[in-house]
């Protein structure tokens, strides 16, 4: 009985924390982007403009929730929910601190890869169901991009799995007691980071929603709360990829002096900030450049990294 209550508290606590982080990231991104462009960003509503989140939420909630007559209605409605649900489900396996995870799954990493692949359906179905050519192009691009980048996202993580000897994320963190995997798995880290940016379709890999050519890509036809869900999904995705980079390559909760949760949060925040910095800096590549980079650079690097790690693990015995 007591155990069940604890699990419930933990689950809903993590859920509430994640949803508020997803909201706060809107504010954080705008402030950081402004900081890197010599501006202030939203700083009027509340202390440091923090209540901007609330104001934005109210605005999104009260907007007209419109479904275009030419849209495929059921799919159109379901699509934005998919990305939020699968991203939140992925968080179930992330260990925030020792014992602080929704579930200690022994195939945690596979679960994450599966869930993040399901996220493609959200974008592809939204593009298809919108019944607009821009949305469809966005959805198609997104499917191709995900197919390409999903491949070496998984491959880049296999080195970590080989060294840790487990798919369980908590085991992987414990295996980084002495050296963080960013040192032996540096190329894996780089490839995973790039694939992660592509996976969350953030800039510079945001071709599915390229504003300048596709209006807003797959979410052109969305408004109100459904649009808000896509936004939430994107920010949750950033948090998820940042958490995973921290957990898989930077030793998760490991670190001296500070409590484990603080270390985890600090490392995750570092990568969230990096995501935003990359958005502030890099222009969007052409579509063929994106695909060429994926198949001709990242995939070979991931494969070579896998080979080298395999050899290393074999030699070590």
């Amino acid at each position: 009985m007591n155990e069940t209550v604890m699990v419930l508290i933990r689950t809903f606590g993590i859920l509430a924390a994640l949803l508020s982080v997803g909201g706060l990231l809107i504010w954080l991104e705008r402030r950081l982007l402004a900081l890197w462009q010599e501006r202030y960003g939203p700083n009027r509503v509340g202390p440091f403009g923090l209540l901007q989140v609330v104001v934005d939420m109210v605005k999104v909630l009260f907007k007209e929730d419109w479904v275009p007559p030419f849209a495929d209605r059921p799919v159109f409605v379901v699509a934005p929910a998919i990305i939020v649900i699968v991203t939140l489900l992925s968080f179930a396996v992330v260990p925030f601190a020792p014992g602080l995870a929704v579930i200690d799954l022994n195939i945690g990493l596979l679960f994450f890869l599966g869930m993040s692949s399901l996220g493609v359906y959200s974008v592809a179905l939204a593009g298809w169901a919108s019944g607009s050519k821009y949305s469809l192009i966005g959805g198609l691009r997104s499917s191709a991009q995900m197919l390409a980048y999903e491949v070496f996202m998984g491959l880049s993580l296999m080195g970590v799995v080989m060294q840790a000897g487990s798919f369980d994320l908590a085991r992987i963190v414990e295996a980084q007691q002495d050296t963080w995997f960013i040192v032996p798995q540096f190329f894996g880290f780089i490839v995973f980071l790039i694939a992660g940016i592509a996976e969350t379709h953030r800039l510079p890999f945001d071709l599915p929603e390229a504003e300048s050519e596709l209006v807003a890509g797959f979410h052109s036809e969305y408004s109100g709360l459904k649009f808000g869900l896509f936004f939430l999904g994107e920010y949750l995705g950033i948090t998820l990829i940042s958490s995973l980079v921290a957990v898989l390559f930077l030793g998760g909760w490991q670190g001296p002096w500070l409590p484990p949760l603080a270390w985890y949060l600090a490392k995750t925040f570092l990568f969230i900030a990096l995501f935003i910095l990359i958005r502030a800096t890099l222009p969007r590549p052409r579509y063929d450049q994106l695909m060429a980079f994926g198949w001709k650079v990242c995939l070979p690097v991931a494969l070579l990294n896998l080979l080298a790690t395999g050899a290393f693990v074999l030699l070590k015995g």
């Binding site: 890197w36 010599e38 501006r39 202030y40 910095l277 990359i278 502030a280 800096t281 890099l282």
Partner: peptide, 16 residues
């Protein structure tokens, strides 16, 4: 290099 350039912009005076 461009990432670094953008990062150090945060220490410049804001134009707003």
């Amino acid at each position: 290099k461009s990432l670094w350039t953008v990062l150090v912009t945060m220490f410049r005076k804001r134009v707003t």
